[in-house]
Amino acid sequence: MKTVGIIGATGYVGAELLRILLNHREVKVTALSSVSFKGQDINSIYRNFIDKTDLVCDTIDDVLEKAEVIFTALPHGLSEGIAAKCIAAGKICIDLGADFRLSSEDEYKFWYERGFSHPELHKESVYGLPELNKEKIKKSKLIANPGCFPTSIELGLMPLLKNSIIDTKGIICDSKSGATGVGRGLGLSSHFPELNENFAPYKIGAHRHTPEIEETLGAMADDKVTVTFTPHLLPISRGILSTIYCNPKEAVDLENLYKLYKDFYKDQPFVNILPLGETACTKNVRYSNYCHISLHLNHRKDQIIVVSTIDNMLKGAAGQAVQNMNIVLGLDETEGLTFISPAF
C-alpha cells in the first residue's frame, strides 16, 4: 500500500482529494500540509471528516518525508521547487496547479508573468489527460494535472481533431463553471449577493487556460490550433458545461460522428457519449469523475456543436489527479472513482 500526501490540503481541491483518497483501497493518506491552518486537525476545518481521519496539517517537509506520492494543490508558481525535491527523492509528484501544463517558457511568462524556476523538470513532466497520454503517464514521476475548463474542452474535441474532421482555426469554446472553480479564498465575484441570481462571463479573451487548450489541441491535431475561449461563472457550487462550436472540413453526418465518438472512447472508462437527441448537463456528472458529451449539428448542418460536461472538482481536478495516480502506480484506473452522480 502506497503512502500519499497532500500539499495544500485545506483548499477545495485538497479537501476533495482527501475525501476520495480516504475511500481508496490501495493507498493510505499519511500527511497533509497547509500554511493557513498549520497545526490544526483537518476534521476541525472540514467537519465532514470527523471520525474519518485525525490527520493534522503539518509542514511541506513533513509531507515530503512521510509520503511516496505527493499531490500539490497550490496556486501557480509554488509547485516547481516541491516537485524538484520529489523527483530528487524518487517520489511521484502530481501537480494540480499550472506550473507544468505549458511546455513553452515564453508562453508561461506571458500568461503567468514568471519564468520556469526548474526548466529541466519540464522535459520530464507529462500532461496528465489520461485519454490522451495514458502510456506516457505510466512511465512518469511528474504529472501535470490538466485544468478544469481545458479538460472539458479537450475531451469534447479530441476525436474530431485526431481524425482531421474540423478546421483548426476559429473554434469557439463557450464554458460555464460553478463557484468552486474560483477557489476557497474570498473575492467579490464569489460573494453571495454578486453570484446569486446572476450569470456573467469573465476574463473575456484573456483567460490563462487559453494557451493550455491551444497547446493540447494542437498536439491532438498535429497542427496549430486557435480558439476563442470565454468562461462564465454560474450560481451553482460545482460543475462545468462547455458548448464548443467548430466547422467541419466537409459535409458530416451526425450518425457517423456518434459512431466515431463511441469507438474513440470505447476503452476510456470515464467518458460517456450520450445518445443522439440528448444533451449533456451538469446535474448528471456532479460528484462523479465522468465526462458526458453530446453531439449536435446546426440547422444548416455546416457546424458541429459539442456539449461537454464534467464536475470541475473531480474530473476537472481531484478525481482526474487520482485517476493519474492509479495509472502511474499500475492500479485499476477506476479505483476509488466509480461513484455515480446523485439523481437529484
Results as ranks from 00 to 15, higher is better:
K38M: 05
K109T: 08
F229H: 11
I87K: 07
L155F: 13
V182T: 11
T226R: 14
K266H: 08
G115P: 08
S164Q: 15
K134Q: 15
I172Q: 07
S177R: 04
L32R: 02
F339Q: 15
I293D: 02
K259T: 10
A98D: 04
G316P: 07
E250R: 13
T334F: 05
D223T: 08
E131H: 13
R184K: 15
C246Q: 03
K38Q: 12
S152E: 03
L55C: 00
N23H: 09
H76Y: 00
R19V: 02
E107T: 05
I244D: 03
I310G: 02
D51H: 06
S117L: 12
D54Q: 12
S175G: 10
G319S: 10
I236V: 15
P150Q: 07
L233A: 00
S294A: 12
S294L: 12
I304F: 07
I94S: 02
W111N: 00
H191F: 11
C281D: 15
S288A: 14
D95I: 09
N272V: 08
D58G: 10
G187Q: 11
P269D: 11
S33N: 09
K136A: 12
W111G: 00
S117E: 15
P269K: 10
L257H: 01
S294F: 09
T59L: 08
E212W: 01
E16M: 07
P193K: 11
E255F: 06
A67D: 01
L274S: 08
E154A: 13
K134W: 09
L32G: 04
L142G: 04
S33W: 07
E107H: 01
Y265R: 00
F229S: 01
S36A: 15
K138N: 00
L129P: 01
T10Y: 04
P201I: 11
E131L: 13
D222T: 08
F229W: 06
Q40M: 11
A206H: 14
T59G: 06
D174H: 14
S308T: 03
M220R: 01
T151C: 07
I293W: 06
N247I: 06
L160I: 07
D332N: 15
L188M: 13
Q323V: 04
L96E: 05
N298T: 12
T282W: 02
I165Y: 10
Y290E: 09
R25H: 13
P275F: 10
A73Q: 06
A206T: 13
A98F: 03
G147T: 07
G97F: 02
S164L: 13
Y265D: 02
L32V: 04
K138G: 00
L22F: 08
G14P: 05
T334Q: 10
L21D: 04
I7W: 01
D54N: 14
G147Y: 02
G187R: 12
V182D: 01
A280Y: 02
L129G: 03
L21C: 08
